[in-house]
């Protein structure tokens, strides 16, 4: 009996929610980006890529004062092609496919977290020599190695436009990645990328909106 009597009081003490969700189609941008890359300690290069959203989640939260806040997340896939140069060592081409989440803070700012899987092909600087079967030295043209590459990146993006067009964004992206098998192990990289994103076009995609109301 005491339990029954206490229950309404407990309800008053705890915050109460009402949740709901629905689905609809919304327009989200496909982005193209070009980034200058500095890979520590001394490599530099360039990456271009595109990201295509495929699913969106919008969280709408209304608080006690009936103020509504939105948190938007787009899930996207990406493809990248880049090149970088390690002076007096090699030049490399890297191709990546990725999957990530874009956190949209406002119309002027968003961040992205992504996981990339790709392939790196190096070509060594200068001439490459090897011994042939007859014991003579021969030259190998464009010789290099192929490695797999896996990495995480986090990007920060700010709109460059004053109006509502939001065509151009400036992007800053630190990334950790590793190439393997490198001397039977893996080689770690830390890169800092900076450049621009361009909103190519909007595409319609399925969006799920979650509503959360504080009662």
């Amino acid at each position: 009996m005491k339990t029954v009597l206490l229950s309404p009081w407990l309800l008053l003490l705890l915050p109460a929610f009402a949740s709901a969700q629905d689905s609809l189609h919304i327009n989200r941008p496909v982005l193209l980006y070009g980034l200058a890359t500095y890979d520590f300690p001394k490599s530099y290069g360039f990456t271009m890529g595109t990201s295509i959203p495929f699913y969106s989640i919008i969280k709408e939260k209304t608080n006690k004062d009936f103020k509504t806040q939105y948190a938007e997340k787009d899930e996207f896939i990406s493809a990248e092609l880049g090149g970088y140069r390690h002076p007096f060592a090699y030049t490399a081409i890297i191709a990546n496919a990725g999957i990530g989440i874009r956190y949209i803070k406002s119309t002027k700012h968003f961040t992205e977290l992504s996981l990339n899987q790709g392939i790196v092909r190096t070509a060594y600087d200068g001439k490459v020599y090897e011994l042939d079967q007859d014991g003579n030295i021969k030259e190998r043209k464009l010789f290099g190695r192929t490695y797999l590459a896996t990495g995480f990146s986090y990007s920060l993006n700010w709109s460059l436009n004053n109006g509502s067009s939001n065509l151009w964004f400036i992007q800053l992206k630190p990334a950790f990645w590793m190439q393997y098998p490198y001397n039977s192990f893996l080689r770690l990289h830390f890169s800092l990328q900076a450049g621009i994103s361009y909103r190519l076009k909007n595409i319609a995609l399925l969006s799920r909106t979650k509503y959360r109301h504080l009662l």
Partner: peptide, 28 residues
């Protein structure tokens, strides 16, 4: 930009005999 990176990457490092050489080659 991309072509710029690639072309600087393909530059020939070997400079021949020099009093101040700075070149690289690889042995595989």
């Amino acid at each position: 930009f991309f072509l710029g990176v690639l072309f600087t990457g393909c530059k020939k490092e070997y400079t021949g005999l020099s009093t101040n050489a700075n070149e690289i080659f690889w042995v595989t």
